[in-house]
Simulated assay, not measured.
Amino acid sequence: MQQSYVYILKCSDNSYYTGVTSKLEQRLFQHNTAFYPDCYTASRRPLELVFYAEFTDINLAIEKEKQIKKWSRAKKEALINDDYEALPNLAKKKFRKL
């Protein structure tokens, strides 16, 4: 079974880009060389790989990528920093008082 990867790049403007691929080194090269000039990362180089996770099921990898893309910056940073205990607290919705 082919490996798939979910990855997070830190861009030069301090934003994060989350992606999924089956060829991590090739995809990082493409990001760093602006292979796709209209891609989000093309104008935000240099890039730093700050997180990746391996999956044996591409469908699960795609599902996790979509999940991470919806996360707040704080939650992504907890994942990047291996602070897994903080993840549940960062998932709680904050309600406004009326």
Rank of each mutant, 00 (worst) to 15 (best):
residue 5 Y to L: 04
residue 78 A to M: 08
residue 49 L to A: 03
residue 30 Q to D: 12
residue 24 L to E: 02
residue 37 P to Y: 05
residue 27 R to Q: 12
residue 70 K to L: 15
residue 93 K to D: 14
residue 58 I to P: 12
residue 15 S to Q: 15
residue 70 K to I: 10
residue 52 Y to R: 02
residue 9 L to D: 00
residue 97 K to P: 08
residue 51 F to D: 01
residue 29 F to V: 06
residue 77 E to I: 10
residue 13 D to K: 05
residue 21 T to C: 05
residue 39 C to D: 15
residue 70 K to S: 14
residue 40 Y to V: 02
residue 10 K to C: 01
residue 4 S to P: 13
residue 69 K to A: 02
residue 53 A to R: 03
residue 68 I to L: 09
residue 42 A to K: 02
residue 91 A to M: 13
residue 52 Y to H: 13
residue 92 K to I: 14
residue 36 Y to K: 15
residue 72 S to N: 07
residue 7 Y to V: 00
residue 70 K to T: 15
residue 39 C to Q: 11
residue 91 A to E: 15
residue 84 Y to R: 04
residue 8 I to C: 03
residue 4 S to Y: 14
residue 18 T to G: 02
residue 86 A to N: 04
residue 68 I to V: 10
residue 10 K to F: 02
residue 42 A to T: 13
residue 29 F to G: 14
residue 9 L to T: 10
residue 1 M to Q: 12
residue 60 L to S: 12
residue 89 N to S: 12
residue 46 P to G: 04
residue 12 S to G: 10
residue 90 L to S: 13
residue 7 Y to R: 03
residue 33 T to N: 12
residue 29 F to Y: 14
residue 41 T to D: 03
residue 98 L to C: 08
residue 84 Y to N: 07
residue 39 C to N: 14
residue 34 A to C: 12
residue 8 I to E: 00
residue 36 Y to I: 14
residue 85 E to S: 13
residue 60 L to W: 13
residue 65 E to S: 07
residue 42 A to I: 04
residue 81 N to C: 08
residue 71 W to Y: 09
residue 93 K to R: 09
residue 27 R to G: 07
residue 1 M to Y: 04
residue 74 A to M: 07
residue 61 A to D: 04
residue 83 D to Q: 15
residue 60 L to E: 11
residue 7 Y to T: 05
residue 45 R to V: 09
residue 75 K to P: 12
residue 25 E to V: 13
residue 81 N to T: 08
residue 24 L to H: 01
residue 59 N to L: 12
residue 63 E to W: 07
residue 6 V to G: 06
residue 24 L to F: 00
residue 17 Y to G: 02
residue 28 L to G: 08
residue 45 R to G: 10
residue 10 K to H: 03
residue 16 Y to W: 01
residue 5 Y to W: 08
residue 20 V to N: 02
residue 68 I to N: 01
residue 85 E to P: 05
residue 32 N to L: 00
residue 78 A to F: 06
residue 44 R to N: 11
residue 34 A to F: 07
residue 34 A to R: 03
residue 3 Q to E: 10
residue 82 D to H: 13
residue 90 L to D: 06
residue 33 T to L: 03
residue 41 T to M: 01
residue 89 N to D: 15
